[in-house]
């Protein structure tokens, strides 16, 4: 990837700011998402809640199905590749997908290495729980970051934890004397040059969305108030009672995240949200956020 290509990819993410990216499993859902005002859709065979329930190895979706969704909407289409699965990413690039999500929601293909994203022209978004993880992904070529949260739970607590952790670490870095930076990056697994850039910018050097467990308009606005640039909603929409209504409400809440009166209106009469999961009830080996190195 040339530097100008990387810049274009980071800039596409900038154009998504303030928006909602929705998981969809078929063209009908994609159409509903687009009409509701989604800024992009994530095309996949099973939403995280079903992946969690059904178990087994979760892989890249059938490209025929992704293609069909691509032909249905004019907004950008994203798709997931397994962590470290460079060939799945190559296939998605050949399909001319707009963004690849190297995602912990799928079963990792490599338990040591992520994809070398600098070798691709297609842009990548990656999940992160803290500053070190976010900047390692950026160093590998990710043009956009998202919190991992705990996908498929409808429980926002992990996304909040990840966003607060990143912000805390950024603030530490910003207020730190220069001579302390080296030991801070060593302790936190942060690439040194990017740490210096973050220290200067006071935020991540790329667009940072919230993801993992967002189920209500209030959840989306919460993540925006915590400083995210936009939100991904996975299972939260199409696992709820009235997806159309909920999708619209989450778009409104994300745009007006600072306006309690509009949030009140957006939150009313949406029907049942997806059923949530208490994180403590999930066995350790079934937690997705720990995937990624």
């Amino acid at each position: 990837m040339t530097e100008s290509r990387y810049q274009l990819n980071a800039q596409l993410a900038q154009m998504l700011k303030g928006g909602v990216i929705m998981d969809v499993v078929n063209p009908d859902q994609a159409r509903i998402a687009e009409e509701a005002g989604a800024v992009a859709v994530m095309a996949l065979e099973r939403v995280p809640a079903d992946i969690r329930k059904e178990g087994g190895v979760a892989r890249m979706s059938d490209p025929a199905m992704v293609k069909e969704i691509k032909e249905t909407v004019t907004i950008p289409v994203m798709a997931k590749a397994r962590i470290g699965h460079l060939v799945e990413a190559q296939i998605l690039e050949a399909l001319k997908i707009d963004y690849v999500d190297e995602s912990e929601v799928l079963t990792p293909a490599d338990d040591e290495c992520h994809i070398d994203k600098r070798k691709f022209n297609v842009p990548f978004v990656c999940g992160a729980r803290n500053l070190g993880e976010a900047l390692r992904r950026v160093a590998e070529g990710a043009a956009m970051i998202r919190t991992k949260g705990e996908a498929g739970t409808g429980n926002v607590v992990e996304a909040v934890r990840h966003m607060r952790t990143m912000t805390r670490e950024i603030n530490q870095l910003v207020s730190m004397p220069d001579e302390e930076v080296m030991s801070f990056v060593k302790a936190n697994g942060i690439p040194y040059d990017l740490a210096l850039e973050v220290k200067k910018l006071g935020r991540l050097p790329v667009v940072n969305f919230a993801a993992g467990g967002i189920a209500t308009p209030a959840d989306a606005a919460l993540m925006m108030q915590l400083g995210c640039d936009g939100v991904f909603v996975g299972s939260g929409i199409f696992k709820s009672e009235d997806p159309k209504k909920r999708a619209r409400a989450i778009v409104e809440a994300t745009a007006y995240f600072n306006d309690p009166n509009k949030l009140l209106k957006a939150s009313m009469g949406l029907g049942e949200p997806m059923q949530g999961l208490e994180i403590d009830t999930i066995p350790q080996e079934k937690l997705l956020a720990g995937r990624g190195w």
Binding site: M15, A40, T74
Partner: peptide, 15 residues
Amino acid sequence: PGGESTCLARLLDIF
């Protein structure tokens, strides 16, 4: 500004 026109159009309408 740039963004997604379908999203912007919808928000312009409802608000």
